Each structure stands twice: as structure tokens, then as C-alpha cells.
Simulated scan of single mutants.
Amino acid sequence: MSQPPPHPELTPQFCFNTTALKDFLRISRASIDDSITQNLNALFTPSTAGFDPSSTSTRNPRASYTKQIPRSSCNTFKTQALFPSWQSRSDVLNYCASVATSPDPEDPEFPLREVEDVKDRERIVDERLDPYSARFFPREARTEMLAAVVRQERGVESIVRARSWKVVGERCGEDWRDWEQAMNDWQKAKRSKRPFA
């Protein structure tokens, strides 16, 4: 069973380095969610029932998933790999979202943006001479860029989790809960130190 990557140290510098942030999310998704079928296949041990020689006499065009993975193996996978990976990514995205909404006194481009704003206010625009003279593209603050990255990654995260939860439901037996409810139940069980079901 794959293990999620280690939780990064949460600092504003980590968040503002959007390449590092995206790399952590990509690697975490690749180790658990993108390889969910392989992870679940590793839990299924067909040899426990013994080998049936008649099974080789016919060809099946597609692998049959009618046999469910044992519930205990599925619960172990969910509690030790899937949900911790999701929680780690949620922690990182929540932290970076709080950094994006906080004041940023250390923004290295703040003085440059101030100068550009002053120049823009002093500019005289005569659209008869140059119809493009009114164009002005202000620099985005790094907190605004980080907020956009966090919004985008949260959207990706929602899609990835829904897809993974669908595969888990198909292989482990249908669960009446959606992924958000199952994750909330796992978090409650973890806080109260009772087994997750």
C-alpha cells in the first residue's frame, strides 16, 4: 500500500513558492489517488480461496470486480492512507489560504507596484491619438496570486476526491456517505479515539 508523502513544514515561504506547493499536491495525489486502483488491487488477495484450474479454461475479456475487497482491508486503507493523505492536503491548502488572506508586509514587489500605481494615475490618456494608451496591467500582489492557486487546487482536489471515492465504493462495497461525510466521520473518530467504520 502506498504511503502519502511527508507533511511539509508550513511556512509562508512554502506557500508563496507555488511550485513547491503544487509539487507537494501533485506527488501526494499521485501516490494515493492517481494510483487508487493499484492500491486497492494490492489489498485483494485472490489466492486465499485457492487456485481453481477450471478458471484457465475460459477467457474473460475484462477483469471482473464482482469480488469485493474485505471490509477490514478497505477500512485499513481508508484510515491509514487515503484519509491521512486528504487531511494533509487540506491542512496545506487551508494554511496557504490563510496566508493569502493575511497582510503581506514582506512582499518584495510592493514598492514597485506603488511606483506603477503613481505613474498610472499621472498618465494622460488621449485615445484619439492612441486607442491603446488606456491599457494598464497592474502587477498582482503575491497574496492574490497565491489565493488564485489555492482556489484552483481546491477545485482539483474536489474532483480527485470524488473520483477516488467512487472507485473505493466500487471495490469496497457501496458506502451511503459521500467523500466529505466519510472524511468528517473519520476526523470525528480520530478525535474521539474510537475505531472508524
Rank of each mutant, 00 (worst) to 15 (best):
residue 60 N to Q: 12
residue 115 V to K: 08
residue 50 G to Q: 03
residue 165 W to E: 02
residue 55 S to W: 02
residue 168 V to I: 15
residue 185 D to E: 14
residue 22 K to A: 09
residue 104 D to I: 13
residue 41 N to Q: 10
residue 76 T to N: 12
residue 167 V to E: 14
residue 27 I to G: 01
residue 61 P to D: 12
residue 59 R to H: 13
residue 120 D to Y: 07
residue 73 S to T: 05
residue 181 Q to L: 11
residue 153 E to L: 11
residue 124 I to M: 06
residue 30 A to H: 08
residue 110 F to P: 00
residue 142 R to P: 08
residue 73 S to D: 10
residue 98 S to H: 05
residue 196 F to S: 07
residue 74 C to M: 04
residue 164 S to R: 05
residue 46 P to A: 08
residue 69 I to K: 05
residue 194 R to V: 15
residue 43 L to I: 04
residue 79 T to E: 09
residue 51 F to R: 05
residue 46 P to K: 02
residue 52 D to R: 04
residue 181 Q to C: 01
residue 123 R to L: 13
residue 138 P to M: 01
residue 122 E to L: 15
residue 27 I to Y: 06
residue 29 R to S: 13
residue 179 W to S: 14
residue 169 G to T: 10
residue 124 I to N: 03
residue 170 E to P: 00
residue 172 C to F: 03
residue 160 V to S: 00
residue 114 E to L: 14
residue 31 S to K: 10
residue 97 A to V: 03
residue 123 R to Y: 02
residue 54 S to M: 09
residue 48 T to I: 15
residue 97 A to F: 06
residue 81 A to E: 13
residue 18 T to I: 03
residue 57 S to T: 12
residue 63 A to S: 13
residue 98 S to W: 00
residue 107 D to R: 02
residue 12 P to C: 09
residue 93 L to H: 03
residue 109 E to N: 05
residue 23 D to L: 13
residue 140 E to T: 09
residue 20 A to L: 05
residue 39 N to L: 08
residue 16 F to C: 05
residue 171 R to C: 03
residue 91 D to M: 09
residue 89 R to M: 09
residue 92 V to Y: 01
residue 153 E to A: 06
residue 50 G to R: 02
residue 183 M to W: 12
residue 78 K to H: 04
residue 193 K to P: 00
residue 47 S to V: 01
residue 12 P to K: 10
residue 23 D to K: 13
residue 68 Q to C: 09
residue 87 Q to Y: 13
residue 53 P to C: 04
residue 55 S to Y: 06
residue 74 C to N: 00
residue 22 K to T: 12
residue 21 L to H: 01
residue 49 A to W: 01
residue 79 T to C: 08
residue 23 D to Y: 08
residue 62 R to S: 09
residue 17 N to S: 14
residue 130 D to F: 11
residue 32 I to A: 02
residue 121 R to W: 07
residue 99 V to P: 00
residue 127 E to L: 10
residue 57 S to D: 12
residue 35 S to T: 15
residue 166 K to T: 15
residue 67 K to Y: 08
residue 118 V to W: 04
residue 114 E to T: 14
residue 40 L to K: 10
residue 176 W to D: 10
residue 7 H to E: 07
residue 157 E to S: 10
residue 166 K to A: 15
residue 127 E to T: 11
residue 60 N to L: 13
residue 175 D to M: 13
residue 56 T to P: 00
residue 101 T to E: 04
residue 137 F to G: 03
residue 111 P to V: 11
residue 164 S to P: 05
residue 177 R to I: 06
residue 33 D to W: 09
residue 150 V to E: 00
